[in-house]
């Protein structure tokens, strides 16, 4: 890594943190609707994986996806526009917080049904194998909670039976909504579930981005060389609630504080200074740059137009097909024409 790469990685993590903080504010102001799941505390995972995956590696994740969108290279402006439901959002304002994707960046979403994207990820890898894209690995993230649903087990089993190149990543942030892992999962180490499928597995630290990078790079290499799936359980922690409507009765403030002391941005900042890669001043400049990027993203998103009426009927199908019913108001409107 060159010095600039370190700074870029640091700034990316700060941008993700600030995007999420601004998103929380905009949600409280009513500018972001629906569900909003913040990634704060988990930044080292997406930044680490995002910085070591190769361009041919597909990324697919669950609904806590804003960090992933940024780490895969989607412009923060486009992410913010999607959060505001605007036409310049990566999903044209029709997906929202939980459904970001950019095929050009090899980012395959943003999926909101717990665990449902896991068999789909196996399918992405199947597509690569089928079409002879030998060097590609599909990297699929899901929470600890998703490992208790059938989709997870069907997906893992299929990936092993067919020896598909998938890196399964459990972002273990220790709670499925408000239920602690050991209250919901028969084994408290998620990685053990891979054992049942004869699958290589490992539990690693997810708060230190350099460690995530090193571990994931090693595992991706091994998948490329030896083939087959691999499950990584990455230990992390979300500082905020599950979503914006979380009363957080399930954990003590002290627990959150303890983890905040292990803050991934703080750890990386200290590393950069201790290793002589950057000074406080240089990193402060990066912080300021990140603030600027996020402020511009919000301005861009606010200025971006709302999707028009016609957007309602676009992309129902890839091929031309009649719209069966346009809703009462629009039917009336078109009758009047």
């Amino acid at each position: 890594m060159e010095k600039q790469d370190f700074l870029d990685l640091y700034r990316e993590m700060v941008v993700i943190r600030r995007i999420e903080e601004r998103a929380a504010e905009l949600y409280q102001k009513g500018k972001i609707g629906g569900f909003l799941h913040l990634y704060i505390g988990q930044e080292a995972v997406c930044a680490g994986i995002g910085s070591v995956r190769q361009p041919q590696d597909r990324i697919i994740t669950a609904y806590r996806d804003h960090g992933w969108a940024i780490s895969t290279g989607i412009d923060p402006k486009v992410v913010m526009a999607e959060l505001l439901g605007k036409v310049d959002g990566c999903s044209g304002g029709k997906g929202g917080s939980m459904h970001m994707a950019d095929v050009e960046k090899n980012f395959w979403g943003g999926h909101a049904i717990v665990g449902a994207h896991i068999p789909i990820a196996a399918g992405l890898a199947l597509g690569d194998v089928y079409q002879g894209n030998d060097d590609a690995v599909t990297i699929c993230m899901f929470g600890d909670g998703a490992t208790n649903i059938g989709f997870f087990h069907e997906g893992l089993n299929l990936s092993k039976v067919w020896n598909l190149p998938v890196l399964w990543v459990t972002e273990n942030n220790q709670y499925g909504m408000g239920t602690a892992v050991d209250r919901a999962s028969a084994v408290s180490e998620i990685r053990q579930k891979a054992e049942g499928y004869g699958m290589r597995n490992e539990r690693i630290d997810g708060m230190d981005v350099m460690q995530v990078r090193a571990d994931v790079e090693r595992v991706l290499d091994s998948i490329r060389k030896e083939g087959g799936p691999y499950l990584l359980e990455i230990m992390t922690y979300r500082y905020r609630g599950h979503s914006m409507g979380d009363p957080e009765r399930y954990r003590e403030k002290e627990e959150v504080k303890k983890w905040e002391a292990e803050d991934p941005i703080g750890i990386f900042r200290k590393y950069l200074i201790d290793e002589g890669i950057a000074t406080e001043q240089v990193l402060d400049e990066q912080d300021a740059e990140a603030e600027k990027i996020v402020a511009e993203a919000v301005d861009f998103a606010e200025a971006s137009p709302e999707p028009g009426d016609d957007a309602l009927f676009e992309h129902i199908y890839a091929e031309p097909a009649p719209v069966e019913y346009r809703g009462y108001a629009l039917e009336k409107k078109s009758e009047g024409k």
Binding site: R58, W108, A116, I118, P119, I120, A121, A122, G123, L124, A125, L126, G127, D128, Y130, Q131, G150, F151, E154, G155, N157, L158
Partner: peptide, 13 residues
């Protein structure tokens, strides 16, 4: 779920 989900993923590629 693996049959249909897997087919969806392969179709996406």
């Amino acid at each position: 779920a693996a049959i249909v989900g897997g087919a969806i993923g392969a179709a996406m590629t």
